[in-house]
Design a protein around this nucleic acid. Structure first.
Lengths: 220, 220
DNA sequence: CGAATAGTTGACCGATGTCAATGAAGGTGG
DNA sequence: CCACCTTCATTGACATCGGTCAACTATTCG
């Protein structure tokens, strides 16, 4: 029942810090708190369960997975994060998750200085994160395999601008560990969706949605 | 695959409002925002999906279930709330869940006036709620039936003071809809735990934990 | 006391997991 | 640039956990 074999083999990588400030992505925080960008290669660890939580992160480009591990290796990915999205809040000052770069990724880091009160900025982000987690609870608790994959594809499509084309930076194993399925089941569901002409795969990481309505019907 | 048959039969009940202010339960909010108590009989609706969200609630006594419904009747309970706990935050000003009293319940209601900034008070509550949702994600995504029930019992025990005795105000169907299982599976798991002398049932709603360690081993 | 509701138990079934083989894609060194 | 190797994805055969359907029991509420 090992969900994956290389969970702890993620390269512990000291991120190189760029002095460049990219202003293309508007930040939710004041410019005074602006931080330089940090780069992480694919698989690099952003933070680990048990570490001190003293910052939150915004994805500049690339993609992040945030997950927990059980003692026997089962893994639950609680969220993926795409460009513009902010992650890393905790209820106390310790991390309770692992966060890793899925592909080559650049992050902006915002220190949470103990004095400053940024609850006004943080609350809407925390609430959005809560809503997303609760949406995901419904998927994991009450959706079938094909419904889970449909919901996942719709979500990814919407977060990427809702064009017909969806990029999947993550592996089948990542998708399985996000949806509570095995890689085989994820793969079979993709095949069934292809058969039914609901999606088309350019390659295994690039999906074209052909029947948006059919997908919506399953996914929610 | 109907998860329950009476989801929408919850009595729409106009709560009677008591003028009494109970000061036994310390509030997280300033006394000026103190509200009188509202009483709800078992099954009464606190709020419904789609309604305006203009308050949050603290349980005085009793128990609450917060859930979503799918079109075909499948239900996912995202949380139970016990005395002292606060629920009802939303990312926008609309509810995206149903909330019902499980047993006869009393709530304190805190209006969220549009002007006042209570993000300082709300943030830690929202973060705690987020953590709980993420804990539950792991249970639904990667735990077996027996592990789910074990985790549930541990959680309920800890929230009730972690003595050996656990009160379950909710039905087997509620537990199933919380854990992503059917009532039959929940019942069978309880029986297996009884067989193995890990728990004892005084009656179906009252559990005594006999082997805390065995339960912990399964539940996390 | 009787009816309705909730819970338990059993037999069987099916969706998804497991194990294994094959195919496709991407990275590396010659 | 190609050949090899490694990793990832797909597909098939089979096993299993939990769901479904049904009968029975226990509890609660008129």
């Amino acid at each position: 029942m090992l969900a994956h074999s290389t969970a702890n083999s993620a390269t512990r990588f000291h991120p190189s810090v760029s002095p460049r400030v990219d202003d293309a992505m508007p930040s939710v925080f004041s410019p005074t708190q602006m931080q330089p960008l940090s780069f992480y290669p694919a698989g690099a660890e952003i933070y680990a369960d048990g570490g001190r939580a003293e910052a939150i992160y915004q994805v500049e480009y690339g993609a992040i997975r945030v997950y927990r591990l059980l003692a026997d290796g089962r893994r639950q990915i609680s969220a993926f994060h795409l460009p513009g999205e902010i992650f890393g809040f905790e209820a106390d000052n310790a991390h309770h998750f692992f966060a890793e770069a899925i592909t080559s990724t650049s992050l902006r880091r915002f220190r949470l200085s103990p004095g400053a009160d940024i609850s006004r900025d943080l609350l809407p982000l925390a609430l959005r994160s809560l809503m997303r987690a609760q949406d995901h609870l419904l998927v994991l608790g009450r959706h079938t395999a094909i419904e889970r994959v449909a919901a996942f594809l719709i979500d990814m499509a919407e977060r990427q601008g809702a064009s017909g084309h969806v990029d999947l930076p993550m592996s089948r194993m990542d998708i399985g560990d996000y949806l509570g399925l095995t890689i085989e089941t994820v793969s079979r569901v993709f095949s069934r969706l292809k058969e039914r002409k609901i999606i088309r795969l350019t390659n295994s990481r690039s999906v074209e949605i052909l029947k948006w309505d059919a997908l919506h019907q399953m996914g929610e």
